[in-house]
Design a protein around this nucleic acid. Structure first.
Length: 245
RNA sequence: UCCAGUGCGCC
């Protein structure tokens, strides 16, 4: 049964959700008992494919058979609704999931926040963040990264500074997601000099680095300080064992 | 213990 979950998980991961569902139906027809590890990946796969209503119907049928959803299950639905811009429905899930003794967690809220931001509804996203800060479910680094990404992409620097101060006060260390969100936003909006300063600062402080961050920083340096600096940084990465894509 | 959320570009 572990390996069937595995197969279903991998099928969903490569976008073959109907194949995964097919495997699921065969297995259950043979008397196999699915768990959250079996159907959650299918539900999320459906949601990511824009099939939120199929996912809903599937969940209804699971519940009828006595299978229990968990917070991952509802977070998948929240993902699906938010992705389609159906925020009222997403909010409704937050309330109705309590009937299945599930409470939304930081992932659930961060998911809505992210889609609201991408949809230009940053003020509404920030109000959810405020609500979290006032409640028992606190924002984590990913939540802040998502919000900073939106604020820097929209040149809302004053609010961004507030957030950075809150992060600092709470002891959250920025990571390469934070910096690529910040530098990427600055580059996109034309603040090349600022993007350079952030890049150099991050590089100086010897934080962790990955390919995406490397691309962004080299792009920033290339457009700002110039190709020489960018090339030096690239060279440093290459000799450090980085494999460019 | 096997399930969920964040960043560049290409498509």
């Amino acid at each position: 049964e572990r390996s069937s979950n595995w197969l279903i998980y991998d099928l969903c991961g490569i976008g073959k959700v109907s194949e995964a569902y097919f495997v699921f139906s065969i297995l259950t027809a043979k008397g196999f008992f699915p768990t959250v590890y079996t159907y959650n990946p299918i539900l999320l796969g459906l949601c990511k494919a824009g099939q939120i209503f199929v996912a809903l119907a599937f969940l209804t049928s699971l519940k009828k058979k006595g299978f229990t959803p968990n917070v991952y299950t509802f977070t998948a639905l929240v993902y699906g609704f938010s992705m389609e811009g159906l925020y009222d429905e997403a909010y409704l899930i937050l309330n109705t999931m309590q009937a299945d003794s599930c409470k939304p967690n930081v992932v659930t809220f961060t998911t809505i926040i992210m889609f609201l931001c991408d949809d230009g509804k940053v003020a509404e996203a920030l109000s959810i963040l405020d609500m979290m800060e006032g409640g028992e479910c606190h924002a984590d680094l990913i939540t802040y990264n998502v919000v900073l990404h939106a604020l820097f992409s929209n040149c809302n620097f004053s609010k961004a500074c507030e957030i950075v101060e809150v992060m600092d006060r709470k002891g959250f260390r920025p990571d390469y997601f934070t910096f690529s969100a910040v530098v990427g936003g600055l580059l996109k909006t034309g603040y090349v000099r600022l993007a350079n300063r952030f890049s150099l600062k991050y590089l100086d402080e010897g934080y962790e680095m990955d390919l995406v961050a490397c691309n962004i920083f080299i792009h920033a340096l290339y457009r700002g300080i110039g190709s020489k600096t960018a090339f030096c940084v690239l060279k440093k990465f290459l000799t450090g064992g980085f494999v460019p894509s």
